[in-house]
Each structure stands twice: as structure tokens, then as C-alpha cells.
């Protein structure tokens, strides 16, 4: 019988991640028919993001692509990607991820039994809110929903905002009723989750990155024979490149769709205003330098050139 790879993710099939997973399944079916079979389970059908890594360690899921923030209890170094204003755009992110340092970070989960196979982009994060945010002082005292991440918490505290953890299922209602003032997300998430309908202002801050890591379990990966492993990896790399292409297009088209909807005003900030945000949030780097590694932060910053 062929080796089964269950690929479990939490988003719809038409998203960049969903299409990347389907592409991977397609490529494997073409090239490794009879040897490997990839079954994709979208929309949290198998497991949610909080449990999928555990299920992988138990051997019931072979591949998943959670967002990088989800790994904070498995390794501290991946918190790097949550640092505010570290990368100026998605190309810089790409440069760093494909550098030797970036590739080395894929192995940072090994002590916990997981292997990173590659990074997948969602995009750069923007700030949305019920009031216009131009300078850091505008965010002061406002409540922002964050994913569970110590870095993101520190990031909002750095501008005197109030970070709140709320389950994703409640976020829309809380934003709609203004119980929470704002949130940060990529263009494609703001569009697909309809946040732009309940958030009248979106600041194009590009202040952070929201990326995923495709992971597998060390036990499963090590158990494959080397040829098969490299063929699967090749198919995956191709699928990731395909997914990244879609993600880049989508970031642009979703941003345009939001502007066209006229439901939300997109605020562009000047270089001076942006500098204020950077000054306010950059101290967060020092706060986490010990956990992440100062050299790594430097290397990441260097990828902006």
C-alpha cells in the first residue's frame, strides 16, 4: 500500500494555503502514484491549529502548515517572525527565509520531534480599527485582538494599547459591536474574514509578517527512504512556490477589493509617521533578543538590503 500523507489545515480550499495543499497532492499523485498518497483535510475537518501538532506527534497527521506564532511553545527562535517592523516587505521575508539562517530555523523544532519543510507566505500585516490610526498615539488605550503570542502582546503594549486574546470565532462579533477596537491581519484575511465590513479604517502599516511553516513529524520523515523523501520535498517546494504566487496576487487583489467596497478607508502613512511607529515598537526587539538570538535578528534585518 502507498504511504499515506494526511495534510490537515484549517482554512478553506480556495485560499492560498488550501490551493498549495491541493497542488502538493496533485503533484505527488502525478509523480509518485502507487508509492505515496496525499489526502488533504481542509477547514479544521481533522484538527484545529492548537491540536494539529500534537496529533502529528501521535502519528495521526503527517503534514500541516500552522502560522509561525503557533510554535512559540515548541521553540523560542521562531518568535523572530512576530517582531514588529523587522522586514520591510514580503521580498525581504523571502530573502531571509531562503538564506542559510532562515533554512536553519526549519530545524529548530527537531528536539520536539517536528521537522520544518518550508515557509509559506500569507503576507504583511496591516492594522485595522474603528478609528483612524495614523501615529502610535492614536492606538493608545485602544483594545486590539491578538493571537496568542508574547511578542504580539509586547508589540501592542509598546504603543500603550491593550492586547486582548479572544478566540477567532468571537472576533467578528466583538469588532462589530466595538467591544474590541481593532486587530492586525493580512489583506487577504481582512478580506476573507469580512473584517473590513466592521472596521471602518485600515492603516497600511506593513508592520509585521504572517507566515506559515509546513511541518511534518521527525518520526515519519526519518522513516521514509531517502529517494522518496527528496521527491516529496521537491513536490512540496514546487507547491509552496505555487502557493506563494497566489498569496502575492491575492494580497494585491484583496486590498483593491477592500478599497473598491468603500466599506473601509485605507490609510496610507507617510515616512515620518511610519518612523514614529518604528521608534515606538522597536524596543520589543531588545525584549526578546535573548530568547530569539541577537545574531538572528541582525541577519533578518540585513535581508532588507
Amino acid at each position: 500500500a502507498p504511504v499515506e500523507i494526511k495534510f490537515s489545515h484549517v482554512v478553506a480550499e480556495n485560499t492560498p494555503k488550501g490551493q498549495m495543499a491541493n497542488k502538493f497532492a496533485e503533484l505527488v499523485a502525478e509523480r509518485l502514484a502507487g508509492k505515496v498518497e496525499v489526502n488533504v483535510f481542509p477547514s479544521s475537518q481533522l484538527f484545529g491549529d492548537n491540536k494539529v501538532l500534537e496529533a502529528m506527534l501521535l502519528g495521526d497527521v503527517q503534514m500541516a502548515a500552522p502560522s509561525l506564532s503557533k510554535f512559540q511553545k515548541y521553540t523560542k527562535s521562531l518568535q523572530l517572525f512576530d517582531l514588529p517592523f523587522l522586514f520591510k516587505d514580503i521580498d525581504a521575508v523571502e530573502r531571509f527565509q531562503s538564506s542559510a539562517d532562515g533554512q536553519k530555523m526549519l530545524t529548530s523544532l527537531e528536539s520536539k520531534g517536528l521537522v520544518g519543510l518550508g515557509y509559506l507566505h500569507n503576507g504583511m500585516k496591516q492594522l485595522s480599527a474603528s478609528d483612524p490610526l495614523k501615529v502610535p498615539a492614536d492606538a493608545s488605550g485602544k483594545k486590539f485582538r491578538i493571537m496568542t503570542s508574547d511578542v504580539l502582546q509586547a508589540q501592542f503594549e509598546a504603543v500603550d494599547a491593550v492586547p486582548l486574546k479572544k478566540p477567532f470565532s468571537e472576533v467578528f462579533t466583538l469588532l462589530q459591536t466595538k467591544a474590541i477596537d481593532g486587530q492586525e491581519n493580512t489583506w487577504s484575511n481582512i478580506f476573507s474574514k469580512k473584517f473590513f465590513e466592521v472596521q471602518p479604517f485600515i492603516t497600511e502599516s506593513n508592520h509585521g509578517v504572517l507566515d506559515y511553516m509546513v511541518v511534518t513529524s521527525a518520526e515519519f520523515w526519518g522513516g521514509l527512504d531517502a529517494d522518496l523523501r527528496s521527491e516529496i520535498k521537491a513536490a512540496l517546494d514546487e507547491a509552496i512556490a505555487f502557493g506563494n504566487g497566489i498569496a502575492a496576487d491575492k494580497a494585491n487583489s484583496d486590498k483593491q477589493a477592500i478599497i473598491d467596497s468603500k466599506r473601509s478607508e485605507v490609510i496610507e502613512i507617510s515616512a515620518e509617521e511610519r518612523a514614529l511607529w518604528v521608534t515606538a515598537m522597536k524596543p520589543v526587539w531588545a525584549q526578546f533578543a535573548d530568547e530569539i538570538g541577537a545574531d538572528l535578528i541582525k541577519a533578518a534585518e540585513a535581508s532588507n538590503q
Binding site: E4, F47, G48, N50, K51, E54, A55, L58, G59, D60, P167, S169, E170
Partner: peptide
């Protein structure tokens, strides 16, 4: 199916602890 009992327990814990609503 070839799911393990451990993952059934995991699913059970998810059902009791991840549904805020």
C-alpha cells in the same frame, strides 16, 4: 480507519476545551 486511540482522546480533549462559544 487507521486513526489511533490516542488521537481520539486528543479529539475529545479538543471538544471539551477549545469551544469558547
Amino acid at each position: 480507519s487507521n486513526d489511533s486511540l490516542a488521537s481520539v482522546s486528543l479529539k475529545f480533549f479538543e471538544a471539551t476545551s477549545e469551544h469558547y462559544t
